[in-house]
Structure formats: structure tokens, C-alpha cells
Design a protein around this nucleic acid. Structure first.
Lengths: 156, 156
DNA sequence: ATACGATACGTCGTATACGACCTATCGTCG
DNA sequence: CGACGATAGGTCGTATACGACGTATCGTAT
């Protein structure tokens, strides 16, 4: 049963939202981390790999933008994926600055077979328990919150 | 202007939500990280300090539960706070296993003066731009999503 | 052609964040 | 009272995650 949610002041709502976001983050991270032991992949690695597969030859800059991560973070993730032979870095012949990320042949099968089931991970399972109306409301709220945050970020 | 949000299939909604959550995390983390350079504190450190202040003498276990973080994570954060003299560890006289976290005198002023303004950080500023109705909807959605995730977690 | 600002990326230092493991302490059962 | 499972927390190894900085390359202006 859910915890009590009394009427909160503006400050209380803020703190409650922060707590909820933290809890969401943790719950989302944990269950697939268990899978990692079996599959050898973490959540961010899976996400990066899927993007690299869908947009083969994507630059690291675009990849980091897609994943909402700093380029230095993605660089490290690609390092580890490369070490496992799941991804390749190739310098762009037309522009020596950009290194294009390519999914190796092994990945195609992996993405098609494993990812869908991983994708239907904690978030997917959680949403299955919600009604379509709830799903819509939650999806809207996340999109809206993201927009609000990004507007503040860019000084709007 | 916000990105297009076409009608998405069930899978598309999932991926969109994951992207939104990632972007929210990043946006929420970044701006206060800038403050860190000035104040010397990170977001998690601030959160932990506030909990330790509000519930003086809290055990590390309870503290980690409040913060939705693993106890090993909180232990490291407390290490750094302790090194800055903002927090103290004292072994519980009644139970030698638990180490109780106390905010030092310096912190009281800090929490009262600095935290409110930090709290009104990215999330607070973002929410100011939203209507009360939107705020309610977003708050509800986060709470609901959290509950759904935690129910799945506990096998409900 | 050369200088030079802009761009893309790699690297580094530090702070999360986690699970696995170890150790010390507690309660309880015999 | 001594054994022993349970509990709290510290430690370790690894993977994010970031900004700052360095380096190589590109475009452009001179």
C-alpha cells in the first residue's frame, strides 16, 4: 500500500517530488543490474548499444546527445563496449575529428533478441500494471517536466 | 518549443519515457553541480545533509532508506561530509553496531540559509513556470510511477 | 599558404552508485 | 555462559557521470 500523501505546501511538494525521482531512479536501475551479471551489460551500455545499432555510424557527439549524457561519459561506455567487441570506433574519412560508432555483427542479433525483453524491464513491467489512462498521464507528466527543466536550463 | 510528440505505440511510449527520465536526471543534476564549485557541495551531499539535520542522530541504514540509496553509497557521502566537518559519526552507546549521524553546529546555519535557495534549484524553477494544475498532475504522476515500480520490485 | 578560432574527441580527477564481502556487535537458544 | 544466526556498517572493485583540460583536425580569414 502506498505511503500517505497528505496535502503538502509548495515546498513539501518539491521535496516529495525529489524523493519520488530518487526512488524511481533507483528502482529503474536495480533490476536490470541483476541481469548484468548474466548478460554482462549495464543499463547505460544497453541504451548506448541500441542507439548505435539504430543509427549506425553515429558520431560520439550525437550519441551523447541522444543518450542525454556528457560526451566523456559516453566515451567511457563505448570504451567498455569496444573491449567486449560489441562496438567499433572508426575515424570519419571525411572529417578526422569525428569517430563514428558502429555496431558489430554480433550486436544485430543481440539487439533484436535480448533488448526487447530487457526493455520490458522494470519500467515496462510497472506500466503493465497501470491503466492506459494512467500511462498516458504519466507519459505526459514526464514529457512536460522534461520540457520545463530544459527551458529553465536554456534560460527561457 | 517542445519536440513533436506523435502518437506512439506501447513500445514507443516506453522508450520516450526512458529518454525523458534520462533528460530529467541530467537537467536536475547539472545546474547545482555548478553551485558545487562555489559551495563545495554536490546534490547528494546536500540531500544527505538535510536529512541528517532534520533527523539528528539518524542511523546510516535509515539515512540510506530516506535517500533511496544503497548504504555503501551513503557511507561514502558521509565520509566526505565528515572530512569537511559538516557531519559527525558517533557510535550508538546502546548498540555498538549502529553509527549515528549528527549534523555539526556549522550545518544548522547552512541548512537554514543556503538550502532553501538550492532547493529552489532547477526543479523548483521549472515548477514555477508550470500552472498549479500542471504541478499537481506531475506530482501525482511521479508518485504513481514510483508506487508502480516499487510494487513490481517487491513482486506484487 | 598560414594563422587561428571552432569543433570533436580523449583523458583525468572526483563524486556518485551499486553489490559483494568482511567485521563487529547484538539477541537468543541451548 | 557459550554458540550462532541476524543485523549494521565499513571496504572494495567496477561502472556511471561530470567538468576541465589537452590534442588533433577543420574552416576561414588574412
Amino acid at each position: 500500500m502506498p505511503a500517505k500523501r497528505p496535502n503538502l505546501g509548495a515546498n513539501g511538494i518539491l521535496e516529495q517530488m525529489e524523493r519520488d525521482l530518487a526512488a524511481i531512479r533507483r528502482a529503474q536501475r536495480r533490476p536490470i543490474e541483476e541481469e548484468m551479471v548474466r548478460g554482462g551489460l549495464t543499463v547505460p551500455q544497453t541504451a548506448v548499444m541500441q542507439i548505435a545499432f539504430q543509427r549506425d555510424g553515429i558520431s560520439l557527439k550525437d550519441l551523447s546527445r541522444e543518450a542525454s549524457l556528457a560526451h566523456s561519459t559516453v566515451s567511457g561506455i563505448v570504451d567498455r563496449l569496444e573491449a567486449q567487441g560489441l562496438v567499433e570506433r572508426r575515424v570519419d574519412p571525411a572529417d578526422g575529428r569525428v569517430s563514428r560508432i558502429h555496431a558489430t555483427a554480433v550486436v544485430a542479433r543481440f539487439v533484436r533478441d535480448k533488448i526487447p525483453e530487457l526493455r520490458r524491464g522494470p519500467l515496462g513491467r510497472a506500466l503493465e500494471k497501470a491503466s492506459p489512462a494512467e500511462r498516458k498521464k504519466i507519459a505526459w507528466a514526464l514529457g512536460r517536466l522534461r520540457t520545463l527543466l530544459e527551458d529553465v536550463q536554456s534560460g527561457a
